[in-house]
Simulated scan of single mutants.
Amino acid sequence: MDPVTVVTGGSRGIGAATVRRLASAGHDIALCYRQDSDAAEAVLTDVHAAGRQGIAVRADTTNPDQVAHLFEAAAELGEITGLVNNAGVTSQIGPFVDLTLADLRRVIDVNLIGYVLCAQEAVRRMSSGAAIVNISSAAATLGSPGEYIHYAAAKAATDTLTIGLAKELGPQGIRVNAVSPGTIWTDIHTVSGLPDRPARVANRVPLGRAGYADEIAAAITWLLSPEASYTSGAILRVAGGQ
């Protein structure tokens, strides 16, 4: 049976790199996106070029009905064997006291509640041998003072979700892990108001640079592979030494 993997936020950044790498590794893919259908179709073209089945589903991962539709569509490709919980947002960088309620709710909704909803739908359809990878962040332990503490807090919750799910689902043969990226060159920084942030913070990183989306995708792909068959409950930090 060929693996069938759902990747949320699969039209850009880490998600798109992950979709492409997984397709090259033999996965059929259901990717979801929220707005940019052209970007999603471009990624899907690469999936098909790799000889794999693929679908792109427009879905807001904070909406339970849309999440259910995503997984119903994915199940048409075959039994779901993998989930990459990747869809995420941040907000304007700034002092903690300037955080708006709207930004707080949006960050928590997407980065935590969306992960929970997608994991629930995935687990309902998974059997022994399946795996979930949640995308966390090095911010979960660094705290992101002066930038986005609320985002860091949401990612710390992702780590806790990962550990709890790994323990609960282990007896069913379902592995759950997280990848914790450092600062990566993606367009998420545009939303924060600092599109060049990866260059600005490179001097904080022991390896002296920001990372690239494909470096994170490589870690995700390994955690979904049979080579990681005894790895569960791990939070794999890919952050250049931070």
Rank of each mutant, 00 (worst) to 15 (best):
P64Y: 15
V191M: 14
G94P: 01
N86P: 02
G173P: 04
E121R: 01
A217C: 04
S192K: 06
A68I: 02
V238M: 01
Y33P: 05
T231E: 14
T158Q: 06
I14F: 07
A42G: 05
V123A: 03
T18D: 10
I55C: 12
P145H: 01
A49S: 12
N134Y: 13
H48E: 15
I108H: 14
T5D: 08
E215V: 05
V97L: 15
V238A: 04
R200D: 13
A59T: 07
G10V: 04
C32G: 12
N111Y: 12
T8C: 08
R125D: 01
T5P: 07
R209P: 07
G78T: 02
I14D: 09
R124N: 04
G233I: 12
P171R: 00
V57A: 11
G164W: 10
I174S: 08
I216M: 00
L44Q: 06
G51I: 00
R20W: 06
G143H: 05
G13W: 15
Q120P: 02
V19K: 05
G10Y: 08
A210H: 07
E79W: 14
G241M: 03
D2T: 12
N86Y: 12
C32P: 10
L70I: 03
Q92I: 11
A154T: 00
T186M: 02
T62D: 10
A49Q: 12
I93C: 14
I108K: 06
L22A: 05
G233F: 15
L99D: 13
A42K: 07
A23G: 03
V84A: 08
A210C: 02
P145L: 00
S180V: 08
I235M: 09
V47N: 09
S229H: 09
W185I: 07
G51W: 00
A218M: 02
G78L: 00
L169K: 02
A138P: 03
A156N: 00
W185R: 07
E72W: 10
I135E: 04
I80Y: 14
A218N: 08
E147T: 10
L161M: 13
H189I: 04
S128H: 13
D65T: 10
P64L: 11
S136G: 13
D46V: 05
E147D: 10
